[in-house]
């Protein structure tokens, strides 16, 4: 269980993290989502004491990180897989963590096996590692103390699709056993497939949080019809809003069952009717973070696959 209360970090006049509060619960994967520079990493660094907050607190199972007697055994942290001495081998880096935590030597081999780094790879210096291999090593370092809480900053960066799948299964299993997982990403799809709860941050502030189901439910319905304009008019006629994309897709807050009835009354044949789901979440993510996006948003065209 991670509890963050009113965390704020200012640099001179710039507020990088602005009154951020949320909690990551045991047994669940909490996704920390936001565009680049939104304040995710700064928030995570404050949780583990690498950056001192201007105000606010972060606690792990009720205690501040600095009060943990041997933090590696309680919290697994991966903030930046590339932040390792390039001249050490993978095995040496794991060995340092194992010795610092006071674990038996055998844990190093177990972890190398767990993250699928071969013996030959473990003997190579980290400067020769691909980003994906560094991420695996970083995950191994985070897991070596068998902690109850994991804090991972962009752990899927640089992993190939099979690697992403592997990590997803690993974290799922970890949470199912009662662990707490907080992972950040700027990629919605990555988070969407694994997270149970979502915390969305933009410009240093939390813009949305809740369970994935709640956030998805709020995202509405996607509908296509042969006479889309008539259907749009019918939906608007009930006092609800709806948007018509140029490709003929309608999006509305009205739930699918009601859209079906409206279409029936209007005599419009539907060709597709579904909850907006992931697509809706992406829409929400882009909307919520629109002000903080570096790119001015032109149009979100998507094939309604």
């Amino acid at each position: 269980m991670i509890t963050v209360e009113s965390l704020t970090k200012t640099y001179g006049g710039f507020t990088a993290v602005d009154d951020v509060s949320f909690s990551a619960r045991a047994g669940r994967v909490t996704g920390f989502l936001g565009p680049n520079g939104a304040g995710k990493s700064t928030t995570m660094r404050m949780m583990v004491g690498l950056t001192s907050p201007t105000s606010g607190t972060a606690t792990i199972s009720g205690r501040s990180f600095a009060d943990l007697p041997n933090p590696g055994l309680e919290v697994g942290v991966l903030l930046d897989a590339s932040a390792q001495h390039a001249g050490r081998t993978g095995r040496e880096i794991l060995g340092i963590a194992q010795r610092t935590m006071g674990l038996p030597k055998g844990r190093v081999e177990e972890m190398l096996h767990k993250v699928s780094l071969t013996d030959a790879e473990a003997e190579r210096r980290v400067k020769n590692y691909s980003l994906g291999m560094r991420q695996r090593l970083g995950i191994a370092t985070a897991l070596i103390g068998d902690p109850e809480v994991l804090i991972l900053d962009e752990p899927a960066n640089g992993l190939d699709p099979a690697g992403i799948r592997w990590m997803r299964d690993l974290l799922r299993e970890y949470a199912d056993k009662g662990g707490t997982v907080l992972l950040s990403s700027h990629l919605l799809h990555e988070i969407e497939v694994i997270a149970d709860d979502l915390v969305v941050i933009g410009n240093g502030r939390i813009v949305a949080q809740g369970t994935k189901a709640e956030l998805l439910a709020a995202a509405g319905t996607v509908v296509r019809a042969d006479r889309a304009l008539d259907l749009a008019a019918a939906i608007r006629g009930t006092g609800q809003t709806c948007n018509l994309d140029p490709d003929g897709t309608l999006r509305t807050e009205v739930d699918a069952a009601q859209v079906g009835r409206i279409a029936l009354d209007a005599g419009v044949a539907l060709t597709e009717l579904r909850s907006a789901d992931g697509a809706g979440l992406e829409e929400m993510f882009l909307e919520l973070t629109a002000e903080t996006q570096r790119e001015t948003r032109t149009h979100t065209e998507r094939t309604a696959a």
């Binding site: 583990v48 004491g49 933090p71 942290v77 903030l79 930046d80 590339s82 390792q84 390039a86 963590a97």
Partner: peptide
Amino acid sequence: QRSGLTTFT
């Protein structure tokens, strides 16, 4: 070398 990220954690 930024290994302090791990060391100080």
